[in-house]
Nucleic acid binder design. Structure first.
Lengths: 341, 341
DNA sequence: CGAAACTTCCAAAGCGCTTTGAACGCTCGG
DNA sequence: CCGAGCGTTCAAAGCGCTTTGGAAGTTTCG
């Protein structure tokens, strides 16, 4: 059943029926009720395609799914998506996943922005120089970002306090007596990796320690990379007594390296990992249970979707700039540094 | 620029331009070339919304994303989605994620099917009695399934050989001398869990062993659940010498339970896990490296998307019924059963 | 050479909705 | 008693595409 038929059934014009259904004020309460009741009764549902054509609004938000990158580094993506889904479901918004390879990610964004298949896009893991942000800004297409944009002015975003998290974690390790600390960070071009790097550095400076004791490595945060990196660090002469991990996956690799070298955690090696709360891989399920800096990526996804919807509803870009605190949770993978280094 | 303007620019009718662009035969090669060149030059892209309205085809495939379920049990979902994305990108199909909670999952499917926002849906993890399949069949809405439908007749699907995988894994353990084996399976209502159960049972029967030596547990396959289950089994009088795990996550929980009880893998306990190839958590990155039955969920995602597109193109439901073999890969988590049980 | 059969192109009618501009009936102040 | 003002409703014009049913122009063939 379509609008025309419904209108005919009610002996009303399409205009009135449409307005009644969409809550416009210029229709009397009485007829509105009649219309709503009839729509209910006939199971009328307006055609999204037609509405889209008529209004130019897609009633959908876009997420670019970079298959390569996500497959390797982002089991987080599901959690994040779950958050996005949560709020978009409330508003009846669809989520359009635009697949892409890293190479043509920018093309995907262009397509989304120009095609009108979505009203707004959510962009995650911003980079220090981010072509996607540049493109969307130029096209004047609405977007919000999850993570810290390199130049946050005029851009709505939500991020967690990566700086604070790693400063806190590093200070904590220093207080436990650790001096040589390895930081296994994400790739250098991500803003979050930069923030974490600064956080750790500041903690060293604050403790009056020379920052060459901080051994920092940037890489794609896979368990495999982390394993290699940890192995190398732990076999070197200047063996660290603690390792800061950018993610739970990194911790997995580090744990393996330690186990293979016969090092016991936390006796010989302390580990702190950042945990985005993947319910599938809870930090408590590792052995030993991991000390983490924790923040919910799902909640962040939900919030960023809210922002996206607000943006569609007319909110100014740059209206929201939230930085969520991160909590340090001490569990079993950290201990005082061993006596002799 | 829209079709009308483009046509005006070329001094041709919209009809001709539209046909030229869509490869219809009733337009001469010469004009087709001219049209294509002009479209290219002006950067013309037809409006998806308008096309959708006119044709009734959405040019999109739907995936219902059950946020609750996936968050806890399906980091696999990303991998799977990556596969789907891979092929749908080739055909320029969009992927519409329809969020839902377990409760109203069926509503989501109904909405997808009736709204015309997608042309076909992909359904995963079919259950023994599956309301979703029933609904879509009744609505005569095109769908394909990833996993084994309870009544496969007239339904296109692709599945991995869960039966064979667990038969093989179980036989392998029996050959190593294991007699008491615990199977930590998925929830009973999933067809894959049934298939795995049957596979293990057959292996016991084939070896002439009483099947009460097989201690089977159905549950949502989280690390936490697996941990509890393994802990209980390993502390019981009839302690198993081997545990079959439904997923890598399950193995994580089992490893923790073993570690806490001072059991060494594989000396005191052998572990075989099914591995859907999450690149984020490779079986090789565990310590010890896990013996697994392996199959690529990503490849399956890609294939099921192909089937979905074929379905849209007019292929009959039930035309495809593929069962992919699963390979047993022996690594470091299995060994001969300890001498005295 | 004229009818039949193609080939190539077009005008116009939708697809199902929103939204503009106008009309209709009423009330009300002057 | 009349026109202004208001609340309610409607007819019709899009939105940008596809597709039907011809209409020209070209070739084929008896």
């Amino acid at each position: 059943m379509n609008l025309k038929e419904l209108a005919a059934e009610l002996h009303l014009s399409q205009t009135t029926v449409s307005r009644a259904l969409n809550g416009y004020p210029e229709v009397s309460e009485k007829t509105r009720e009649i219309v709503l009741a009839a729509a209910q009764r006939f199971g009328y549902r307006p055609s999204p395609a037609a509405r889209r054509l008529a209004t130019g609004r897609a009633h959908a938000l876009g997420v670019v799914f970079n298959a390569e990158r996500n497959a390797f580094m982002d089991p987080l993506f599901v959690e994040y998506l779950a958050g996005v889904a949560e709020t978009s479901a409330k508003e009846g918004f669809d989520i359009l996943i635009s697949p892409s390879t890293p190479r043509d990610e920018i093309v995907s964004f262009g397509r989304l922005a120009r095609d009108g298949t979505v009203d707004v896009v959510i962009l995650s893991a911003p980079q220090v120089t981010d072509a996607r942000i540049a493109l969307l800004s130029e096209l004047k297409f609405p977007f919000v970002v999850h993570g810290r944009p390199p130049a946050p002015a005029g851009i709505s975003y939500i991020d967690i306090d990566n700086f604070g998290a790693f400063q806190q974690a590093t200070s904590f390790l220093i207080q436990l007596g650790h001096r040589r600390i390895t930081l296994i960070n994400g790739e250098e071009h991500f803003t979050f990796a930069q923030d974490r790097s600064r956080g750790a550095a500041i903690a060293f400076a604050a403790a009056g320690l020379p920052n060459d004791l901080l051994d920092e490595h940037f890489m794609s945060m896979t368990a495999e990379n982390a394993y290699r990196c940890a192995r190398q660090a732990l076999e070197s002469d200047a063996r660290p007594t603690a390792i800061l991990c950018g993610s739970i996956l990194v911790a997995l690799g580090v744990l393996r390296a330690a186990a293979e070298l016969g090092l016991e955690v936390p006796r010989d090696l302390s580990i702190v990992a950042h945990d985005d709360e993947m319910p599938a891989f809870p930090a408590e399920q590792f052995h030993p249970q991991l000390t983490t800096t924790r923040s919910s990526i799902r909640a962040a996804g939900a919030r960023v979707a809210e922002m996206a919807l607000a943006r569609v509803a007319g909110q100014k870009p740059g209206a929201v700039a939230e930085v969520w605190p991160v909590q340090l949770i001490v569990r079993g993978s950290t201990a005082a540094a061993p006596e002799k280094v």
